[in-house]
Design a protein around this nucleic acid. Structure first.
Lengths: 158, 158
DNA sequence: GATAAACTGTTTACTAGAATAACAATATGG
DNA sequence: CCATATTGTTATTCTAGTAAACAGTTTATC
């Protein structure tokens, strides 16, 4: 992958050498970058660490205690049916509890346990260490710029 | 998702309001952005258009005719076993041919057909239109910066 | 107040993408 | 020649996710 080149267009007196097609696409670069970051995340959090989506769910439950499952699914941008297994895992590991809400007997409010809050704080530190290491070749400005540009794309959500 | 806030830390005389945990992580923003772009890609290319990975494979075959399947898998960063179905689909649709190579009876060099080259040119235009529309709120500079930053992450490949 | 519509959590079934391990055919290096 | 490696392929498994249906419950409408 180091030095792929192609001749995109030729005129009579010059040959324009441009980047290969794929690398001009944001989507392609986004996917390739995502795969790298995701793999490093899993490696950094280890065998029985959190998968990215479980970490994200726990993060939101800790930050927004008493969030409902439907609300959490909306925040994560996934179907609520897909959230059940994630919440099951977190509850099985004793990191949160499904609790009944007085006013509405349908909803299960999610409340982090003390163990859950502590586990999240540790996991968050591990994730920060993973990102610090993986993105060591980016400056603080570059990281902020990147997050800002990705947020601009994320503005198309919903 | 519009205005999530949390109090990260409190001192005696001020309350610091910071971004929610997840949005400070590059990995999280990367994934959310990737999901949006990928969904728009599929929507733009339509029902029986190319899936992203099939488009990528065809792109490389057109740009590097006679590439082997193993070589193509390496370029795409996937296992060669996973490439078989992709090449099967492209061959079934008449867009490339598996051809024998004189020197080595193991390899199947992949050669785009005329139909394949034409289909690729059209698909590439569709992908460009999709990205132009989706990223209309980014300037040319911003797009170039984004690609550059993603490429810096991609430098960790392999 | 009855009834229709909507929402919540859940289960089941399904799909896509990808990894791994094994295999036969073939090629390469000591 | 023999061991080792490579190529394309199949079969198996895993993960992440969607979609549809459901029973229980709440809300809205007439």
């Amino acid at each position: 992958m180091a030095s792929l080149r192609n001749t995109e267009r030729q005129t009579d007196d010059e040959t324009l050498v441009e980047t290969p097609d794929l690398e001009e696409f944001i989507g392609y670069n986004l996917k390739r970058a995502y795969v790298i970051v995701q793999a490093d995340f899993r490696r950094a959090l280890g065998e029985d660490g959190f998968a990215p989506r479980v970490f994200s769910a726990l993060s939101l439950v800790v930050q927004y205690p008493n969030v409902t499952q439907s609300g959490l699914a909306r925040m994560l941008g996934i179907e609520r049916s897909g959230l059940v297994a994630i919440v099951d895992e977190l509850e099985r590991r004793g990191l949160l509890k499904r609790t009944h809400v007085p006013g509405d007997r349908r909803v299960q409010a999610l409340v982090p346990t003390d163990k859950g809050a502590k586990a999240y704080a540790e996991a968050r530190a591990a994730v920060r260490a993973h990102e610090d290491a993986l993105f060591a070749d980016l400056s603080g400005d570059e990281k902020a710029t990147l997050i800002g540009l990705l947020a601009k794309i994320r503005a198309h959500e919903g």
